[in-house]
Nucleic acid binder design. Sequence first.
DNA 1: AATACGTCCTGCTTGC
DNA 2: TGCAAGCAGGACGTAT
Length: 316
Amino acid sequence: MPELPEVEVVRRGLERGVVGRVIDGVEVYHPRAVRRHAAGPEDFAAVLLGRTVTTACRRGKYLWLGLSPQGAEAAGPEAAGPEAVEAAAAGAAAAGAAAAGAGESLLGHLGMSGQLLVVPSDSPDQVHLRVRFRFGDGGRELRFVDQRTFGGLAVVSGADLPTSIAHIAPDPLTADFDVERFVDALRRRRTGLKRALLDQTLISGVGNIYADEALWAARLHYARPTETVSRAEANRLLEAVRTVMTAALAAGGTSFDRLYVSTEGVSGLFERSLEAYGREGEQCSRCAAPIRREAFMNRSSYTCPVCQPRPRRARW
DNA sequence: AATACGTCCTGCTTGC
DNA sequence: TGCAAGCAGGACGTAT
């Protein structure tokens, strides 16, 4: 299931594989894949034609491709190569608010099983191929493949940060993540600790796997009421989130159920490094107690019953 | 306002 | 053997 590290691997693949290229063909095979595109599948395909991909960005689990203005003379791949990327990055940093909201982007979310693949045009169609993008250079095409169709694509306003995801909090791997702000906001909540971690308006990019891994690393139980979490514990938890995600990114992500792959179709190797998630009955690497699985929020939570004792006052 | 929960979706696994 | 229930779970709309 793609969370921040997996989405970042995909973003990097898109940066290498499609930035600087001109879209000249779009085919939507399943309308649900573009349900967030308000104007419908036909408009989705039409509005992308002739646009150059200028950037590949990410916040939390969302990723988006910056698009050259509609109707602008299509720049050749050479003209809109790395220079365009640098210009966009510099513009975002320097112009700040002035650049925010301007322009359009192809926004995507992988959901549970979404894949963005950059593959040769003559490679066989995937069973769950939902959208195909061809490029003017005739090179490899971009394919959105999604078995469970929880993911989706849409053309939206905003290039710096699409307006439709302005409610998504910064993610903990960005340099300007405000630690104090996060700690304060977490401790003001009145909910369980894992619920808070999974709330993308508080901190983005954390899903079920890395929430369990970070809680295990920080020796905290998922049902700890947030108002009882000390500043030190909150900082420890955030540090654990960063550590586990950084390690996962270095390993190419976690491919727990083989539905997550990079743009090249490669699985990540972090599954073998998981300490809690998916390890029910196996020994905790710290204390040898068997890892416990419990139903929680209609999904599973894995904890070490010794390292992560259930709080007397539990909240979930 | 803030928090909680049902719903969407498909394919693999489990159990009778 | 075959069928059905269970399970995986991110984000959003709705309910409280």
